[in-house]
């Protein structure tokens, strides 16, 4: 092979490489909201496929990042305010509101959301904030459980999670059978599904940082949920988003709060260990 041909082959290889692996680095900006610096990069916990876990904020467009950084402009804050109203509103047969038992959420719910999902000994499965709210409503307030993704459910969940704003995510996997749910969630994360034959890991691990059409693939972290998505112009819950991803692989969607999605929530939340709770985050 003469020299020119070798060079040509090298150039072609580079060109093909670029075409196949359009990679864009997540930005190195710092996210500061109301003077509070968020942890958007954290050393990964043991057993994690990445060295560093990255917040989805680092992958978004500058305008979207700016919207989250300004707590006034962030439309998600409207839902935090709405959640506070719900917190203080009496509902159900027993004439109680959340505040009747839990008083001031800024004290009683402080940092609580950063450690969900938790083990629930009664039902012997993990419980997330939405289900915890339903439990309180049915058992303590004599009210009905929320329908999945009811506007009030999203607002109240957002408000409670917001009380952990800035707190690093940390799950307690030692409680109950959390570890086996984590194992199950991990298995699901790596299982290819749907007509497109994609696993969570196909996009959010193997292709993290690349583009899937116009979308800059993040690590798929849960720390910003419920999150304000510009596409829906509304708050989007974690289970809604997971169902959306599964739909996009053209698979059948598991029901919200089903065993499949609860296991996935445990595992995916763990993958974001150390990141600040950003609720209400703003995403594309």
């Amino acid at each position: 092979m003469n020299k020119n041909l070798v060079l040509l082959a090298a150039v072609a290889a580079v060109a093909v490489g670029v075409a196949q692996f359009a990679y864009a680095d997540p930005v190195s900006d710092k996210l500061v909201i109301d003077g509070k610096e968020m942890i958007t990069r954290a050393p990964a916990p043991e057993g994690h496929p990445f060295k560093e876990v990255l917040s989805g904020w680092l992958f978004r467009e500058p305008e979207t990042r700016a919207l989250e950084a300004d707590s006034f402009a962030n439309p998600g804050m409207l839902y935090v305010e709405r959640g506070e109203e719900i917190w203080n509103t009496v509902d159900g047969a027993k004439g109680k509101s959340c505040a009747s038992c839990h008083n001031d959420a800024s004290e009683t719910m402080k940092d609580v959301g950063a450690h969900y999902p938790k083990w629930d000994a009664e039902t012997k499965r993990p419980i997330n904030i939405e289900l915890q709210i339903d439990k309180c409503r049915t058992e303590q307030m004599g009210a009905e459980a929320y329908k999945f993704d009811a506007a009030d459910q999203k607002a109240l969940t957002t408000y409670i999670k917001y009380q952990s704003f800035g707190t690093p995510v940390k799950l307690d996997l030692a409680k109950g059978d959390m570890q086996s749910w984590w194992d199950r969630g991990k298995k699901e994360y790596y299982t290819r599904t749907g007509q497109l034959n994609l696993a969570c890991a196909s996009c959010h691990e193997a292709s993290m940082g690349r583009h899937i059409r116009a979308d800059h693939l993040s690590q798929g972290q849960a720390n910003g949920f419920p999150t304000y998505r510009l596409k829906q112009a509304d708050m989007v819950s974690l289970h809604n988003r997971m169902r959306g991803c599964i739909r996009d692989t053209r698979a059948e969607m598991p029901k919200a709060f089903s065993d499949e999605l609860m296991a996935l929530e445990v595992y995916v939340t763990w993958r974001g260990t150390g990141l600040s709770v950003e609720t209400p985050a703003v995403r594309q």
């Binding site: 804050m77 409207l78 839902y79 305010e81 709405r82 506007a151």
Partner: peptide, 10 residues
């Protein structure tokens, strides 16, 4: 959402 609620910052 419930009744629209304005927020202003001046």
């Amino acid at each position: 959402m419930a009744t629209p609620k304005p927020r202003v910052k001046v």
